[in-house]
Amino acid sequence: MIGHLISLKQLEALIWVADLGSFRKAAQQLNTTQPNISARIAGLEETLGLVLMHRDAGSVRMTDKGSEILAVARRIVGEAETLTEIAGRADLSEGRLRLGVTELVAATWLHQYLRDLKATYPAISVELTVDMSRQLDAALGNHSIDLAIQNSPFVTAASGVIEIGQYPYVWAAEKSLADALAHAKTLKDLMPHTLLTHARHTQSYIELSDQAQALGVPTTSFAPSSSLTSCMQMAADGLGVALLPRIMAERGAGADRLTLLDGLWLPSALRFSARYDRDTAPRYVAQAAAIAAATAQAFGHDPTPKG
């Protein structure tokens, strides 16, 4: 038996250094120090009598034998995590989840999700990033985050994907302005007012611009923003008509001061997924993705994509 020669901590260190390309980042991920990670790798190399990686300036490069050992290390650590699942002891899982979510999630069901996650994995700490979906896409691609809860389209492929569902849009305004627009039928009827929208590169803004062009109306009244929460607050303050995900307009902060406008053109619904790297992520990341889908469904949206 070699259990006294090779430890799971050594194998975890090897995996994270390889995935993150940095001893410092691996130490942060495992909640330890860089010298500790270096000692674990050095100990593993000494035991095996192999050089597992080359430390170049600012990067780490696996040797051929190191890559073979890494593949086996992934299987061993994965099987160890399976033991805790079989025993129903998710509370034994330790580590850090680098979680990325969009503003919609942060403004609606994020807090409940974090509570649900903590109930299942009390020893897993969460490092949270709230950003636009395309930034989360890039972060997932370069291993800066472990799990992205984001809307399509995606540029970076992910081997682990759990569909969360769709979030349709709605037009919303402060009550007196909404009353004045009660008979609005087309986008033209909204044009005398500032239209508060998401950022220019987003699918909703692109579709809105295309619709305006099709109607032959100018886009000078469009006021795009990287913050949907700001759009919502400005609309609640009577500063314009906001194009918002319905779940935010109905249940986000300030929703009680908004009135929804029906019967108007709307862009395609946002389609959300929980995405991660199934081949490299710890098993608790896949479970965290599944918990996110369950929390979102329980929060009260339509979990089935349509169209």
Rank of each mutant, 00 (worst) to 15 (best):
H4G: 07
L5I: 05
S7L: 00
W16E: 15
D19R: 14
L20Q: 12
G21Q: 01
K25A: 15
K25V: 12
N31V: 12
T33L: 07
A39V: 01
L44I: 11
G49N: 03
R55E: 13
D56T: 13
E68K: 14
E68T: 09
I69R: 08
I76K: 05
T84M: 05
R98H: 12
R98K: 11
V101L: 07
A107Y: 05
L110K: 04
Y113W: 06
L114F: 04
A119H: 12
V126D: 00
V126C: 02
L128F: 08
R134G: 02
N151R: 06
S152Q: 09
S152I: 03
P153T: 14
V155E: 14
A157C: 05
V161S: 07
V170W: 00
K175A: 13
D179Q: 13
A180I: 00
H183L: 06
A184W: 04
K188S: 15
L190S: 03
M191W: 04
P192A: 08
P192D: 11
P192G: 01
T194A: 15
Q203M: 14
Y205C: 10
I206L: 13
L215N: 07
Q233K: 11
A236R: 04
G238E: 11
L239F: 06
V241F: 03
L243A: 12
L244R: 10
A249I: 05
G252Y: 07
A255Y: 10
L266G: 06
P267T: 12
S268L: 11
S273Q: 15
D277T: 06
D277N: 15
Q287N: 11
A288K: 10
A289T: 07
A290V: 09
I291R: 08
I291F: 00
A292Q: 03
T295G: 01
G300Q: 01
G300D: 03
P303H: 10
